[in-house]
Amino acid sequence: MTDQAPILEVRDLSVSLPISGRMVPVVTDLSMSISPGEAVALVGESGCGKSMTARAIIGLPPPGAVVSGSIRLEGRELTTLSPRERRRVGGRGIGFIFQEPMTSLHPTLSIGQQMTDALRYNLNLPTRVARDRARELLARVGLPKERDLLNAYVHELSGGMRQRVMIAMAISCNPKLVIADEPTTALDVTIQAQVLELLIAMRAEIGLAMLYISHDLEVVAEFCDRAIVMYAGDQVEAGTPVECLKMPHHPYTRGLVDAIPHAGEARARLSPIPGQVPSLGSWPRGCRFQPRCPRQDDRCATRPELATVVRSEVRCWHPLVGEVS
Protein backbone atom coordinates (compact mmCIF):
# COMPACT_ATOMS: atom_id res chain seq x y z
CA MET A 1 0.00 0.00 0.00
CA THR A 2 2.86 2.36 0.67
CA ASP A 3 3.82 2.64 -2.99
CA GLN A 4 0.59 4.46 -3.80
CA ALA A 5 0.43 8.21 -3.36
CA PRO A 6 -1.33 8.90 -0.07
CA ILE A 7 -4.89 10.25 0.00
CA LEU A 8 -4.18 12.28 3.08
CA GLU A 9 -0.84 13.46 4.30
CA VAL A 10 -0.51 15.47 7.49
CA ARG A 11 2.83 16.96 8.58
CA ASP A 12 3.53 18.59 11.93
CA LEU A 13 -0.06 19.55 12.63
CA SER A 14 -0.41 21.73 15.70
CA VAL A 15 -3.57 23.31 17.06
CA SER A 16 -3.82 25.97 19.78
CA LEU A 17 -6.97 27.34 21.32
CA PRO A 18 -7.61 30.59 23.14
CA ILE A 19 -8.47 29.61 26.71
CA SER A 20 -9.03 32.39 29.25
CA GLY A 21 -7.08 34.90 27.25
CA ARG A 22 -4.04 32.89 26.23
CA MET A 23 -3.24 30.47 23.47
CA VAL A 24 -3.00 26.93 24.79
CA PRO A 25 -1.64 24.07 22.65
CA VAL A 26 -4.14 21.24 22.23
CA VAL A 27 -2.45 19.16 19.53
CA THR A 28 1.28 19.27 18.77
CA ASP A 29 3.39 18.05 15.85
CA LEU A 30 1.09 15.34 14.64
CA SER A 31 1.96 13.61 11.39
CA MET A 32 0.20 10.84 9.55
CA SER A 33 -0.43 9.58 6.10
CA ILE A 34 -3.31 7.51 4.81
CA SER A 35 -3.05 5.53 1.56
CA PRO A 36 -6.01 4.74 -0.68
CA GLY A 37 -8.20 2.11 0.92
CA GLU A 38 -6.27 2.18 4.18
CA ALA A 39 -7.93 2.46 7.60
CA VAL A 40 -5.99 4.39 10.22
CA ALA A 41 -7.12 4.67 13.82
CA LEU A 42 -6.58 7.63 16.12
CA VAL A 43 -6.78 6.33 19.67
CA GLY A 44 -6.55 8.03 23.04
CA GLU A 45 -8.39 8.97 26.18
CA SER A 46 -10.91 11.75 26.52
CA GLY A 47 -9.49 15.21 25.89
CA CYS A 48 -6.22 14.10 24.26
CA GLY A 49 -7.05 16.01 21.07
CA LYS A 50 -8.53 13.40 18.73
CA SER A 51 -11.56 15.39 17.66
CA MET A 52 -9.48 18.55 17.42
CA THR A 53 -7.11 16.81 15.01
CA ALA A 54 -10.04 15.71 12.87
CA ARG A 55 -11.60 19.15 12.87
CA ALA A 56 -8.29 20.74 11.92
CA ILE A 57 -7.99 18.33 8.99
CA ILE A 58 -11.40 19.29 7.60
CA GLY A 59 -10.65 22.95 8.23
CA LEU A 60 -13.35 23.47 10.85
CA PRO A 61 -11.56 24.03 14.18
CA PRO A 62 -13.40 26.00 16.87
CA PRO A 63 -13.40 29.79 16.45
CA GLY A 64 -10.12 31.43 17.43
CA ALA A 65 -8.05 28.27 16.95
CA VAL A 66 -4.60 28.58 15.41
CA VAL A 67 -3.64 25.67 13.17
CA SER A 68 -0.17 25.17 11.74
CA GLY A 69 1.48 22.45 9.68
CA SER A 70 0.70 20.94 6.34
CA ILE A 71 -2.41 19.00 5.30
CA ARG A 72 -2.46 17.51 1.81
CA LEU A 73 -5.48 15.83 0.27
CA GLU A 74 -4.54 13.81 -2.82
CA GLY A 75 -1.35 15.83 -3.09
CA ARG A 76 -3.09 19.19 -2.84
CA GLU A 77 -2.09 21.47 0.02
CA LEU A 78 -5.26 22.51 1.87
CA THR A 79 -3.88 25.00 4.38
CA THR A 80 -3.03 27.61 1.73
CA LEU A 81 -6.43 27.53 0.02
CA SER A 82 -8.95 30.31 0.55
CA PRO A 83 -11.58 29.33 3.12
CA ARG A 84 -14.22 29.10 0.43
CA GLU A 85 -12.12 26.87 -1.83
CA ARG A 86 -11.00 24.79 1.10
CA ARG A 87 -14.52 24.04 2.16
CA ARG A 88 -15.47 23.04 -1.36
CA VAL A 89 -12.48 20.72 -1.76
CA GLY A 90 -12.94 19.26 1.73
CA GLY A 91 -16.68 18.82 1.26
CA ARG A 92 -16.20 16.72 -1.85
CA GLY A 93 -13.06 14.88 -0.88
CA ILE A 94 -13.70 14.02 2.78
CA GLY A 95 -16.81 12.52 4.33
CA PHE A 96 -17.28 13.13 8.02
CA ILE A 97 -19.18 11.11 10.63
CA PHE A 98 -19.66 12.63 14.04
CA GLN A 99 -19.71 11.13 17.49
CA GLU A 100 -23.12 12.50 18.44
CA PRO A 101 -25.89 11.11 16.26
CA MET A 102 -28.39 13.01 18.40
CA THR A 103 -27.17 16.50 17.57
CA SER A 104 -25.23 16.17 14.33
CA LEU A 105 -28.27 16.23 12.07
CA HIS A 106 -30.43 19.30 11.64
CA PRO A 107 -33.53 19.09 13.85
CA THR A 108 -35.99 20.90 11.61
CA LEU A 109 -34.83 20.03 8.10
CA SER A 110 -35.97 16.68 6.74
CA ILE A 111 -33.40 13.97 6.09
CA GLY A 112 -34.06 14.37 2.37
CA GLN A 113 -33.46 18.11 2.42
CA GLN A 114 -30.16 17.69 4.23
CA MET A 115 -28.95 14.93 1.95
CA THR A 116 -29.93 16.61 -1.30
CA ASP A 117 -28.37 19.95 -0.35
CA ALA A 118 -24.91 18.43 -0.41
CA LEU A 119 -25.59 16.39 -3.56
CA ARG A 120 -26.98 19.35 -5.42
CA TYR A 121 -24.27 21.69 -4.38
CA ASN A 122 -21.22 19.42 -4.60
CA LEU A 123 -22.17 17.29 -7.61
CA ASN A 124 -24.44 19.82 -9.37
CA LEU A 125 -27.26 17.28 -9.51
CA PRO A 126 -30.79 18.47 -10.29
CA THR A 127 -33.16 18.11 -7.35
CA ARG A 128 -34.99 15.05 -8.63
CA VAL A 129 -31.82 13.17 -9.42
CA ALA A 130 -30.40 14.15 -6.04
CA ARG A 131 -33.49 12.78 -4.30
CA ASP A 132 -33.26 9.52 -6.18
CA ARG A 133 -29.64 9.21 -5.25
CA ALA A 134 -30.38 10.02 -1.62
CA ARG A 135 -33.02 7.29 -1.59
CA GLU A 136 -30.50 4.85 -3.04
CA LEU A 137 -27.91 5.80 -0.43
CA LEU A 138 -30.35 5.25 2.42
CA ALA A 139 -31.15 1.80 1.12
CA ARG A 140 -27.47 1.10 0.77
CA VAL A 141 -26.75 1.79 4.44
CA GLY A 142 -29.40 -0.74 5.34
CA LEU A 143 -32.30 1.54 6.22
CA PRO A 144 -35.74 0.09 5.49
CA LYS A 145 -36.94 0.98 1.99
CA GLU A 146 -40.58 0.83 3.03
CA ARG A 147 -40.25 3.88 5.19
CA ASP A 148 -40.25 7.24 3.51
CA LEU A 149 -37.16 8.40 5.35
CA LEU A 150 -36.46 11.28 3.00
CA ASN A 151 -39.41 13.13 4.49
CA ALA A 152 -38.63 12.07 8.05
CA TYR A 153 -37.02 14.26 10.70
CA VAL A 154 -34.21 13.26 13.05
CA HIS A 155 -36.42 13.01 16.10
CA GLU A 156 -38.36 10.20 14.43
CA LEU A 157 -35.25 8.02 14.09
CA SER A 158 -33.43 5.83 16.60
CA GLY A 159 -29.76 6.42 17.38
CA GLY A 160 -28.63 3.61 15.11
CA MET A 161 -30.77 4.89 12.24
CA ARG A 162 -29.38 8.39 12.69
CA GLN A 163 -25.85 7.11 12.50
CA ARG A 164 -26.73 5.21 9.31
CA VAL A 165 -28.07 8.45 7.86
CA MET A 166 -24.81 10.15 8.85
CA ILE A 167 -22.88 7.41 7.06
CA ALA A 168 -25.05 7.77 3.97
CA MET A 169 -24.40 11.52 4.00
CA ALA A 170 -20.67 11.03 4.50
CA ILE A 171 -20.33 8.79 1.44
CA SER A 172 -22.88 10.67 -0.68
CA CYS A 173 -20.43 12.75 -2.72
CA ASN A 174 -18.08 9.85 -3.45
CA PRO A 175 -15.25 10.95 -1.16
CA LYS A 176 -11.92 9.11 -1.18
CA LEU A 177 -11.59 9.48 2.58
CA VAL A 178 -14.03 9.24 5.44
CA ILE A 179 -13.23 10.55 8.89
CA ALA A 180 -15.33 8.89 11.58
CA ASP A 181 -15.15 10.50 15.03
CA GLU A 182 -16.20 7.81 17.52
CA PRO A 183 -19.20 6.91 15.37
CA THR A 184 -20.45 4.17 17.69
CA THR A 185 -19.66 5.48 21.17
CA ALA A 186 -23.12 6.88 21.78
CA LEU A 187 -24.88 3.72 20.61
CA ASP A 188 -25.99 0.53 22.31
CA VAL A 189 -23.68 -2.45 22.11
CA THR A 190 -25.66 -4.48 19.59
CA ILE A 191 -26.33 -1.35 17.50
CA GLN A 192 -22.62 -0.48 17.71
CA ALA A 193 -21.85 -3.82 16.14
CA GLN A 194 -24.33 -3.14 13.33
CA VAL A 195 -22.88 0.27 12.52
CA LEU A 196 -19.31 -0.96 12.67
CA GLU A 197 -20.17 -3.83 10.37
CA LEU A 198 -21.73 -1.37 7.94
CA LEU A 199 -18.67 0.88 7.94
CA ILE A 200 -16.38 -2.06 7.31
CA ALA A 201 -18.59 -3.27 4.46
CA MET A 202 -18.77 0.20 2.90
CA ARG A 203 -15.03 0.53 3.06
CA ALA A 204 -14.50 -2.76 1.24
CA GLU A 205 -17.20 -1.98 -1.29
CA ILE A 206 -16.01 1.47 -2.38
CA GLY A 207 -12.36 1.18 -1.45
CA LEU A 208 -12.62 4.07 1.01
CA ALA A 209 -9.69 5.25 3.04
CA MET A 210 -10.69 5.91 6.62
CA LEU A 211 -9.51 7.81 9.66
CA TYR A 212 -11.29 6.16 12.55
CA ILE A 213 -11.25 7.89 15.92
CA SER A 214 -11.83 5.82 19.01
CA HIS A 215 -10.85 5.55 22.65
CA ASP A 216 -10.80 1.78 22.42
CA LEU A 217 -7.76 0.00 21.00
CA GLU A 218 -9.55 -3.33 20.99
CA VAL A 219 -12.33 -2.03 18.75
CA VAL A 220 -9.97 -0.65 16.12
CA ALA A 221 -7.77 -3.74 16.19
CA GLU A 222 -10.60 -5.57 14.42
CA PHE A 223 -10.38 -3.64 11.18
CA CYS A 224 -7.77 -0.88 11.12
CA ASP A 225 -4.45 -1.20 9.34
CA ARG A 226 -2.62 1.25 11.55
CA ALA A 227 -3.21 2.97 14.86
CA ILE A 228 -1.90 6.26 16.18
CA VAL A 229 -2.01 6.55 19.95
CA MET A 230 -2.33 10.05 21.38
CA TYR A 231 -1.64 11.33 24.88
CA ALA A 232 -2.13 14.96 25.92
CA GLY A 233 -2.06 16.32 22.37
CA ASP A 234 0.95 14.26 21.39
CA GLN A 235 1.30 11.30 19.10
CA VAL A 236 3.12 8.83 21.36
CA GLU A 237 3.02 5.68 19.27
CA ALA A 238 2.05 4.61 15.76
CA GLY A 239 1.97 1.05 14.53
CA THR A 240 -0.38 -1.76 13.70
CA PRO A 241 -3.18 -2.00 16.25
CA VAL A 242 -2.27 -5.58 17.01
CA GLU A 243 1.30 -4.58 17.73
CA CYS A 244 0.05 -1.74 19.94
CA LEU A 245 -2.13 -4.20 21.84
CA LYS A 246 0.20 -7.16 22.04
CA MET A 247 3.58 -5.48 22.18
CA PRO A 248 3.18 -1.81 23.07
CA HIS A 249 6.42 0.16 23.00
CA HIS A 250 5.37 3.38 24.70
CA PRO A 251 4.79 3.09 28.45
CA TYR A 252 1.50 4.96 28.04
CA THR A 253 0.20 2.53 25.44
CA ARG A 254 1.27 -0.26 27.74
CA GLY A 255 -0.61 1.33 30.62
CA LEU A 256 -3.71 1.78 28.49
CA VAL A 257 -3.69 -1.86 27.39
CA ASP A 258 -3.13 -3.13 30.92
CA ALA A 259 -6.02 -1.07 32.24
CA ILE A 260 -8.55 -2.87 30.02
CA PRO A 261 -10.27 -5.59 32.02
CA HIS A 262 -9.83 -8.96 30.37
CA ALA A 263 -11.44 -12.32 30.44
CA GLY A 264 -9.78 -14.83 32.71
CA GLU A 265 -8.04 -12.34 34.96
CA ALA A 266 -11.21 -11.74 36.95
CA ARG A 267 -10.86 -10.89 40.62
CA ALA A 268 -7.18 -10.16 40.14
CA ARG A 269 -6.26 -6.49 40.25
CA LEU A 270 -6.21 -4.29 37.18
CA SER A 271 -3.11 -2.21 36.60
CA PRO A 272 -4.31 1.36 36.28
CA ILE A 273 -2.00 4.18 35.24
CA PRO A 274 -1.27 6.13 38.43
CA GLY A 275 -2.29 9.77 38.61
CA GLN A 276 -4.41 11.53 36.07
CA VAL A 277 -4.16 13.17 32.65
CA PRO A 278 -2.67 16.68 33.02
CA SER A 279 -5.18 19.37 32.25
CA LEU A 280 -4.96 21.57 29.21
CA GLY A 281 -2.43 24.35 29.65
CA SER A 282 -0.49 22.58 32.39
CA TRP A 283 1.27 19.89 30.42
CA PRO A 284 4.66 19.01 31.89
CA ARG A 285 7.80 20.04 30.02
CA GLY A 286 9.57 17.39 28.03
CA CYS A 287 7.75 14.10 27.81
CA ARG A 288 4.11 14.71 28.76
CA PHE A 289 3.64 11.26 30.23
CA GLN A 290 6.68 11.54 32.46
CA PRO A 291 4.95 12.27 35.82
CA ARG A 292 2.91 9.06 35.51
CA CYS A 293 5.57 6.93 33.88
CA PRO A 294 7.29 4.03 35.66
CA ARG A 295 10.35 4.36 33.39
CA GLN A 296 10.80 8.10 33.88
CA ASP A 297 14.28 9.55 34.48
CA ASP A 298 16.25 12.80 33.94
CA ARG A 299 16.28 12.49 30.20
CA CYS A 300 12.51 12.73 30.08
CA ALA A 301 12.74 16.44 30.92
CA THR A 302 13.47 17.04 27.24
CA ARG A 303 10.84 16.16 24.70
CA PRO A 304 11.61 12.95 22.81
CA GLU A 305 11.26 12.85 19.03
CA LEU A 306 9.34 10.16 17.21
CA ALA A 307 11.72 7.28 16.51
CA THR A 308 11.35 3.86 14.99
CA VAL A 309 11.18 1.03 17.48
CA VAL A 310 10.82 -2.40 15.90
CA ARG A 311 7.96 -1.76 13.45
CA SER A 312 6.41 1.24 15.18
CA GLU A 313 7.04 4.94 15.58
CA VAL A 314 7.42 5.82 19.24
CA ARG A 315 7.96 9.10 21.09
CA CYS A 316 9.85 7.88 24.14
CA TRP A 317 13.38 7.88 25.56
CA HIS A 318 12.88 4.48 27.13
CA PRO A 319 10.61 2.47 24.86
CA LEU A 320 9.66 -1.04 25.82
CA VAL A 321 11.15 -3.57 23.48
CA GLY A 322 10.09 -7.18 23.37
CA GLU A 323 8.13 -7.14 26.63
CA VAL A 324 4.86 -8.86 25.88
CA SER A 325 1.88 -7.46 27.76
Binding site: G255, A259, I260, L270
Partner: peptide, 11 residues
Protein backbone atom coordinates in the same frame (compact mmCIF):
# COMPACT_ATOMS: atom_id res chain seq x y z
CA UNK B 1 -14.59 7.44 33.08
CA UNK B 2 -11.58 6.84 30.86
CA UNK B 3 -10.10 3.34 30.80
CA UNK B 4 -7.08 4.19 32.93
CA UNK B 5 -9.19 5.92 35.57
CA UNK B 6 -11.87 3.27 35.31
CA UNK B 7 -9.27 0.70 36.32
CA UNK B 8 -8.43 2.73 39.44
CA UNK B 9 -12.06 2.88 40.53
CA UNK B 10 -12.73 -0.80 39.79
CA UNK B 11 -9.68 -1.81 41.83
Amino acid sequence: LDVSVQAQVLN
